[in-house]
Design a protein around this nucleic acid. Structure first.
Lengths: 257, 257
DNA sequence: CCATCTTTGTGCACGCGTTCACAAAGACAT
DNA sequence: ATGTCTTTGTGAACGCGTGCACAAAGATGG
């Protein structure tokens, strides 16, 4: 029983590295755009630029799928769209349930990017009885009591958790017990799941904190190697200097410099 | 001018590895929970379990920040909360603007996880004149025309893009030109930014596609080493077998097995 | 049929991240 | 003060991911 694995530990899923799998949707998006413009073929260089990656990396990624290119020409757009879609499992229909229809859950239900990729929102589930029956994004919200029934009768294997943090683990347990084996978690909690269940986490607050770290670092580089600091960075730098006291009064004695 | 860098290439920001920085918010969350329960100290083992990581990794991560633990005892919770907060730059106030107040933008504006971490939503911006003045999450929406003015007068250095894909690059360019140096992008596009600007991407559709890949793989393992496949996995396996034809009629001749 | 040119596919080297395993350090009891 | 016990901090090994650089492959023109 692994504790809160975020993505597959290190196991190559079938010879395809995890890092490559994570980029396939990126390539697919770029290819779809080319397909809509009726572009017949692309070189690795062009496609890499469109997807925002290195061309060597792209070629290596594709090499894991097989030899789908033609030397001297490039890749057939339509064919590659099909191959990547198939590899990602997007040629079949994936029923998905969203649990927790608050602001975020409703936004997810309305998000158009799901249907276009073979993901079908099979049900919206919320613990609030007042929500039951209310239509969100054209689908009636159902009560948590029916969770197991919904999962089983629709053959749902992918669940999206958009509940408050406190309810997430409990919802997760019920989803897994009912047969869900992949979970996309928006709640700010570490989920514990049994082996064989995949969890991916999306945390808005964490992403912002990472940005803040880099932002602070940029602001602290005023006396950097070259005066390359953007205008706005210096402005915010004032507040950071003071060694402000902790939120709860006094700090332990050991204070490194 | 780098094309669509998603996160810092490989440059250690100041001796602190990028992977470690990405985990600091995780530790911080676990520590905050402990702090609220008035727990005075934690061992690396306990904290690692709470954060869902390996204890050795956690200790190594903390070692990059300095020697903040006490051997034989563990880490002082309050002190560590303070140190990590400071390292992440959360002891200062970060004004943030959200551009694109649709379903997702509104959900983000209402998200409570921002304010509690020192992120203050300074303004909501939308291109739709009909939205102007409308209050969302207690803040009046402002028109895109005022974007530059808002950024500059508030000293905003972090921007959140929640617009449709088509508008994202244009909004990004304006944000950067006005002085924003960190961007959190929810639009399904690769953003091109000048050097010195950090972009982090959150893409709901991509996360689901990655889950679908693993889900498909699990379903295809019916004849696996041991009958350990979950109940629901087998159910969906029926559809995957048939070598269904591509969306646009015929495929190129070369068809590997 | 041959030469040339373009672009793929990949062997190889390098660096980052993870994990193990243990020595050093401090707390605590005697 | 000394010994024991717990837990940190880190040296070292390993594996994955990335990028370079080039040979192989095919298209194209003469």
């Amino acid at each position: 029983m692994a504790t809160g694995r975020t993505h597959r530990p290190a196991t190559r899923s079938r010879g395809i590295p995890e890092a490559t799998v994570a980029r396939l949707p990126l390539y697919l998006r770029a290819l779809t755009a080319l397909s809509e413009r009726s572009v017949p073929t692309v070189s690795s260089e062009e496609l890499a630029a469109a997807a925002g990656v290195n061309s060597a990396k792209l070629r290596k990624d594709f090499s894991y799928l097989g030899s789908y290119g033609t030397r001297g020409v490039g890749y057939d757009v339509e064919y590659l769209v099909y191959q990547i879609s198939r590899e990602l499992g997007l040629t079949q229909d994936w029923p998905v349930v969203i649990v927790g229809i608050g602001n975020l859950g409703a936004a997810l239900a309305n998000y158009g990017g799901f249907a276009s990729r073979g993901f079908r929102v099979a049900a919206l589930i919320d613990a609030d009885p007042a929500m039951a029956g209310k239509p969100v994004a054209g689908i009636g919200v159902q009560h948590t009591d029916e969770l197991e029934h919904i999962i089983e009768s629709n053959g749902v294997s992918i669940g999206v958790i958009a509940t408050p943090a406190g309810a997430a683990q409990q919802v997760c347990d019920r989803l897994v017990a009912a047969g869900v084996t992949s979970i996309l978690n928006f709640a700010p909690t570490v989920l514990t799941v049994p082996d064989g269940v995949d969890v991916r986490k999306v945390d808005l607050s964490i992403e912002l904190q990472i940005l803040a770290f880099h932002e602070q670092r940029k602001a602290g580089e005023e006396a950097g190697p070259d005066g390359g600091a953007p205008a706005a960075a210096a402005r915010a730098a004032a507040a950071v200097a003071g060694d402000r006291k902790g939120p709860d009064g006094d700090m332990p004695a050991v204070m490194p410099a």
